[in-house]
Every structure is written in structure tokens, then in C-alpha cells.
């Protein structure tokens, strides 16, 4: 059953598909410019401790983003 969850709740090494963003135009634009776009396959690579940032892989690129941002990216898991 597909399920929509915030990116931050993925398990490490789990993949999902980017569905939509919660936030203003500016925020959405910024994400898309970094390569995080609707329909892309995204993989959670690492969570930094102490509520630090997360590292994701998208299109064979690694990106570091803050937790708040990750909370506002909604992805669809396949399980």
C-alpha cells in the first residue's frame, strides 16, 4: 500500500518518490533547483545526530538538507 509521509520519516537506505512540498513558492523553487522535484526517486542516506541535517540521494547526487526542510517534503513510500 503506497503511503504519503514526510521525507524525514523514511528509514535509512529506504527509497521513496517525491510527491509534493508544503511551503511557499520560494521554498518550492529552491528545492526544485536543487534537483528535488515531484516524481523523482529519493533515498535517505544518513541522519546526523542531535537533530542535525539529513543526507539524501537523488539522481545519483548527494544532498544535505536541514530537518525542517525534510519535514516539508512529502514522499510516497512503496510499502
Amino acid at each position: 500500500m503506497p503511503m504519503e509521509v514526510p521525507l524525514i520519516s523514511l528509514a535509512i537506505n529506504q527509497t521513496a518518490i517525491v510527491r509534493h512540498f508544503i511551503g511557499g513558492q520560494h521554498f518550492q523553487h529552491k528545492l526544485r533547483m536543487m534537483g528535488i522535484r515531484e516524481g523523482k526517486v529519493i533515498k535517505l542516506l544518513a541522519l546526523q545526530p542531535l537533530m542535525g541535517p539529513i543526507v539524501i540521494e537523488i539522481d545519483r547526487r548527494e544532498l544535505t538538507i536541514g530537518r525542517r526542510m525534510a519535514n516539508h517534503i512529502i514522499v510516497e513510500t512503496t510499502r
Binding site: M34, P53, V55, R61, L63, T64, G66
Partner: peptide, 8 residues
């Protein structure tokens, strides 16, 4: 103070 957001 923006959150980090960078490409590796």
C-alpha cells in the same frame, strides 16, 4: 540563520 542546504 537558514538551515543548511548543500550539494555534495
Amino acid at each position: 540563520s537558514y538551515e543548511i542546504c548543500l550539494e555534495i
